[in-house]
């Protein structure tokens, strides 16, 4: 079997928060894969062995953490994640990965982590593995109550603030705070890393381009292959003149220089904010 395909065993599946109110947030703990290395921001394609032809695709999940076990975190959003929530201790799961690009790690650079909802997941591993966590700070915007997310991992390690979005005014407050902080990190040549739903990433991208912040965005996309073959998860590269790019071109995957849409699964999911076009 290729090294990047592992058959792992479910250790446990732990629901977060009160299921009946907001529905389905879970931490899925799997036996440890044989990976030589991984980078936070990377993801896996996961497919339980019990799935028959009814569900032909594997599902992409961001890697939350790797310790004695592999920890993934997901929310029920459709029929695939609903079936993942039925997994039990001892079930076998096929895991392809680690896949894609991870977040930039710079030991002493002030680094701002921006998470929207489930976008918090890769930052758990990022904080855990970062060589200088004192340089990190996190802003987390969320709709479901805080206990639905793996937020407790940040409390004692980095400066972390959370914003519960109960109404539109909360969102404005959150985005205004993000904008101020992006401006201040840009002024210090800091690094900004963001993960979350597309509207949130669009807003963050706009702020990063405006303040000329060095920033990376992690995209979420529906995926079929995870191998860069089906071209179902593509994003448009942002051509140089439109981005006002201030970094060297070699940071960008070669495929992006050709102008055609590129697969999020292999050229991403983490992209430099000034290298992709997130407009409709």
């Amino acid at each position: 079997m290729p090294a990047n395909i592992n058959t792992l065993t479910v250790v446990d599946l732990v629901p977060f928060g009160l299921e009946r109110e907001h529905g389905g947030f879970y931490a899925l703990r799997l036996s440890r894969p044989n990976w030589a290395d991984w980078t936070p921001g990377q993801f896996v394609m996961i497919r339980p062995e019990t799935w028959g032809p009814e569900l032909p695709w594997a599902r992409p999940l961001s890697i939350c953490m790797l310790s004695a076990d592999l920890i993934l975190f997901f929310q029920i959003v459709g029929r695939g994640s609903k079936r993942l929530a039925e997994l039990r201790h001892g079930d076998k799961v096929q895991v392809v990965g680690p896949l894609g690009t991870g977040f930039q790690v710079e030991k002493d650079t002030p680094t701002l982590l921006l998470a929207g909802g489930m976008g918090i997941v890769p930052f758990v591993g990022y904080v855990q593995r970062h060589p200088g966590p004192n340089a990190l700070s996190l802003l987390f915007g969320h709709r479901a109550p805080l206990e639905y997310y793996p937020f407790e991992h940040f409390d004692d390690k980095v400066e972390a603030r959370h914003f519960h979005e109960a109404g539109p005014e909360d969102l404005t407050l959150f985005l205004n705070t993000v904008d101020e902080r992006v401006a201040s990190y840009a002024a210090r040549n800091g690094l900004v890393l963001a993960c979350g739903p597309l509207p949130f990433l669009r807003a963050v991208q706009g702020m990063c381009l405006k303040h000329k912040a060095r920033a990376q965005l992690s995209l979420e996309s529906r995926m079929a292959c995870g191998a860069g073959a089906c071209l179902g998860c593509v994003v448009k590269p942002l051509l140089d003149e439109a981005s006002g790019r201030n970094r060297s071109a070699q940071d960008i995957p070669e495929q992006m220089h050709k102008g055609l849409p590129v697969p999020t699964c292999t050229c991403g999911p983490v992209f430099w904010a000034d290298s992709i076009d997130l407009k409709d």
């Binding site: 032809p53 009814e54 569900l55 032909p56 695709w57 695939g80 529906r222 079929a224 089906c230 071209l231 179902g232 998860c233 593509v234 448009k236 050709k258 102008g259 055609l260 849409p261 409709d280």
Partner: peptide, 24 residues
Amino acid sequence: PRPGNPMPRIAETSCGMLNAIGLQ
């Protein structure tokens, strides 16, 4: 070269999938 169709381009269905990649 062809850029293909707008997103979304794929959808999983029961025992199958739909694609409209547009020959990118």
